[in-house]
């Protein structure tokens, strides 16, 4: 589903990604962990070209992203993204937030888009919030709307960029619950997260990143109980 070969990313002279290689299979849930500044978010953002790739290859669902002939807008319709700061559209109701892209990109009729949006709201447990504005919702509710908004495009992959980091602790659970449900339904997911419990329970694979490279990867059990690299051990000691 996703294939990354020797991905480099520079911001000016600062090299943030120094050669990332990884493959993500359909239906796989991959959690990316690591200290802040390690390049996790940048890596994730390269997967839908929110960051331009400096060098290397990123192939998503058969589309080579760093090829100028690739229509990036089309690729993005297949790749949902959920942001740390939710980034809901504050001038639109919850329902309109979810309906916008299916109508304007997929050309769904209002009726179809609305049905789809309502079904998704039900799925994330927010059927009663359809007519509200984002500012009237709690952080956890906003993030669940953001997930529903991304799902409305029926993407093949979902990218999560620290989806619970901006939430009050008591609201983290409801968002992780929705994500877990999604994982169980077989969604391909790449999750940058600090929630080790989630990575351990839901992740099929964990990537540990530090200083722009993937230092270690493996199944969660192995990474969390028997890390091989000193850097992984050091990081896990600090946070667990």
């Amino acid at each position: 589903m996703i294939e990354v070969n020797n991905l480099h990313k520079k911001f000016g002279n600062l090299e943030v990604l120094k050669g990332i290689n990884c493959q993500i299979k359909p239906k796989e849930v991959v959690c990316v962990i690591g200290p802040s500044g390690s390049g996790k978010s940048t890596f994730l953002r390269c997967l839908n070209m929110l960051e331009e790739i400096t060098s290397g290859d990123v192939v998503v669902d058969g589309n080579q992203l760093n090829d100028s002939k690739t229509n990036i807008n089309e690729v993005r319709t297949e790749v949902g993204m959920v942001f740390q700061q939710f980034n809901l559209f504050p001038h639109k109701t919850v329902l309109a937030n979810i309906m916008l892209a299916p109508q304007k990109v997929r050309n769904l009729s209002t009726q179809e888009a609305k049905e789809r949006a309502l079904a998704l709201l039900k799925k994330v447990g927010l059927s009663d919030k359809a007519t509200m504005y984002p500012s009237q919702l709690s952080g956890g509710q906003q993030q669940r709307v953001a997930i529903a908004r991304a799902l409305a495009m029926e993407p093949k992959v979902m990218l999560f960029d620290e989806p619970t980091s901006a939430l009050d602790p008591e609201l983290v659970g409801e968002v992780l619950e929705v994500m877990k449900k999604l994982a169980l339904e077989g969604m391909t997911m790449v999750v940058v997260t600090h929630e080790m419990g989630f990575a351990r329970e839901v992740g099929d694979r964990v990537l540990f990143m530090d200083e722009g490279i993937i230092v270690e990867e493996g199944n969660p059990e192995q990474i969390f109980t028997n890390p091989q690299s000193e850097r992984t051990k050091g990081f896990l000691n600090k946070i667990l």
């Binding site: 807008n73 993204m81 700061q85 809901l88 304007k104 990109v105």
Partner: peptide, 25 residues
Amino acid sequence: KGQMEAGRSLGLDHGKTMRYIIWPQ
């Protein structure tokens, strides 16, 4: 900046994101 990114990540092109998301705000 997140508003533009949210629009673009949904597959809206630059023009549509401007029109439906950025401009009204």
